[in-house]
Design a protein around this nucleic acid. Structure first.
Lengths: 229, 229, 229, 229
DNA sequence: TTCTAAGCGAGACGGTACGTCATGTCTTTTT
DNA sequence: AAAAAGACATGACGTACCGTCTCGCTTAGAA
């Protein structure tokens, strides 16, 4: 008998997400407990188990709620980078600018942000929790990939980017190194690195026009696209 | 009083690593417990705490032990890709071949391997365990990056690869997408993807010598260069 | 606002008592729950709380209902000893026969009966529930004591039983040992025991006629036998 | 693996029994919880479950401990009637005195005593807990019955009490009414009642010497009084 | 050789968190 | 207004692990 969402208490829902997010940000994922959330939210423990399958699900929903909804009315420490700078027309115009914007948005959210570094822990938890992994892929990563993928396709149609590369693979060239440094390698993840990655990626993708002139290595190639102007 | 390693019982050590690895492979990281390891190893629980700081440390050491030592005498299900094909001269000769070998070795170990998919869980655990993160970076990731980095530098010196890119950043172009698909995106991680990534990476790095001969990727799929002919 | 009994749903009432009794007989007192009764009766939980103050009250009423109303229409496993063989004229005629009939009725109901041994649990529950204790005393024990008490008084008036004994105390001589073996001592409670108890009781009560001097309570009776020598 | 009693912590044991008894006396059986005992004793909850099968077992052991060991050094509110006045020679000499002593001891312990009325609750709990019932029968009731039974046998051998009655049945004549009023009937349980019961009991048992013809147990005695007319 | 200090197996200990269950109150919807 | 339905706060339950702490037992190296 799956609980009927229509009868759900909105107050409890809010209180739970707020409590879960607060505990998460304050003490990290490991420090969050079902009992702790319930106590802080002034809610029965059973209410948690009624609506969520696991701690991971609650914490992720709380995170999503806080980050996506934008700055909280009062106390929110969120950078609220949220989904994206969001004006879609970037896509057509300037892929390089879009990619760079994304890379810097990533840094803002994951590295500088208060709750940002906590996302690492959620991704970590997802490694042993297939449900969480699926939900995060659907609700967090894919929404962030989609607009970039679309811009990439547009660029391919416009002939600005080689058309023989699967857009998802191309996307990975930018997204992957950022996540890699965040999660795997301990090496620095800063603006310089983000710029370098974007440039290299553009290099790799560039060259439907690359033809002869394009291939100039050291300096000019960094801003390859711009150089073409 | 830090325990004296000289008096350490070798039998217990072996039994503990074997037990930890067995439990890890059988049930996943979450299913491993200190008590479980001790019981399976026929060892007192205190012995674990005497020599290791945490469950993560034991499991990682057990994993490292099994994977690095090569095929076990009797029952080892490890593909034993282990460190690397290991003869360093690959480096000079053919960077593309080396990269491809690494990418496929990654698949063999992380995707096909029995204990392979378990490594995901260890990386996940490291997201909330700085000590584990550090140890893994030092003892697992860096040893696998080092020879490739060296080959890259060699290629840079030989003029086969553009010299204005930080080798570690360049490395990430290959390593990152593989880890990204493993850990973050739920998208397929197979040989075709590995090949595509290596090709794109070579494209990005190629071209101080790019012009004529340098990079011939796997299938001509890149066809950029060929097209120029 | 005390609920108005006039508006009470007869169907629900029946269903609740049936459900409570069924759960009680099937699994014992501890296994009965408010939620369980409500679910089995197809009734809202609040309906239980509206009409009964506690689980004990429901279960006792259900027990009383089933045992007193006589054999159920279809499935009743009750021996339906119920109140008593019921023709009151036994009282005058033959006290011994009456007592024996009661003692054997007790065995039938409490020991042999299906729901019989469950009564033990109700008495047990009454030890921590004063309300239940009171209700049981009024509605279960007293109705069973009353006719015997009346018979005893009749016998006292007729001179067949010593008149210097409080009828309630005399009653206890028969009722108490049966309950004692049921509730306290683990010793066998069977027909032989019931007969022996009744005989001894008759001995104790008999003799206002048997021996004029004897009935001096406190001092002399202590060594009754010796003193008379 | 049943826990090894040799390694048991004496301090915890004491603290647990003290805590359990205190909670029991203060709030009644229902108010005692495993968690409450553990907290008050400053003990882990698992320690309770390690050594006792149930709350009932702990509380009974605590009760037994307090009542049997005699008056506590400082705060014990127990009347310490405990086992018995204990000098066995009462048995031979004066059965009546012994019975009366027991009856009054019963009142002191069960009715007047602080923890006394709590014993009712334990007997109540035993009605749904066969293990507790068995343990109480062995460790509480039987030790109190044994000396009286022995005195009775002695009296039978001495010819002071009719020999055709099973001693346990005879015992019940005194013990049962006291427990009956305590547990079942709500009627007063006081010294007068106790005396009356003892007197009646002595009457019932007396007369192998009292009346030559009378002592035919099962059949003829039924209408004894009437028959003699 | 004896002493002694460590490692070791075993497992009891005080704790924390878990997920389930039952309670009694409440609100919503239907009859 | 009673009733079915069921969400809610509360809190006890029994279990699983945690990390620490004794216990004896062995097993050296030092006296």
């Amino acid at each position: 008998m799956p609980a009927d969402p229509a009868r759900r208490s909105q107050e409890s829902w809010r209180a739970i997400l707020d409590a879960a997010y607060a505990l998460f940000v304050e003490g990290g994922y490991q420090s969050v407990t079902m009992g702790g959330i319930a106590a802080r939210a002034g809610v029965g423990r059973q209410t948690l188990y009624r609506w969520w399958p696991s701690k991971a699900a609650i914490v992720f929903e709380a995170f999503l709620d806080k980050v996506s909804i934008g700055p909280l009315p009062a106390d929110g420490p969120l950078p609220a980078d949220g989904p994206l700078p969001a004006d879609g027309d970037l896509a057509t115009g300037d892929l390089a600018t879009l990619l760079r914007a994304y890379a810097h948005g990533f840094l803002t959210l994951y590295v500088d942000g208060a709750g940002g570094s906590r996302l690492r822990e959620l991704i970590g938890a997802a490694q042993t929790d297939p449900d969480l992994a699926r939900v995060m892929a659907e609700q967090w990563f894919e929404p962030r990939r989609a607009p970039v993928r679309e811009a990439l396709r547009e660029a391919q149609r416009a002939g600005a980017v080689r058309a023989d590369v699967d857009p998802d693979t191309a996307l990975d060239l930018v997204f992957a190194p950022l996540h890699y440094r965040l999660l795997v390698s301990g090496q620095p993840l800063d603006a310089a690195y983000a710029d370098a990655v974007v440039d290299l990626c553009l290099h790799a993708l560039r060259y439907i026009a690359s033809d002869t002139t394009a291939s100039r290595p050291s300096k000019s190639s960094l801003q390859g696209p711009q150089a073409r102007r």
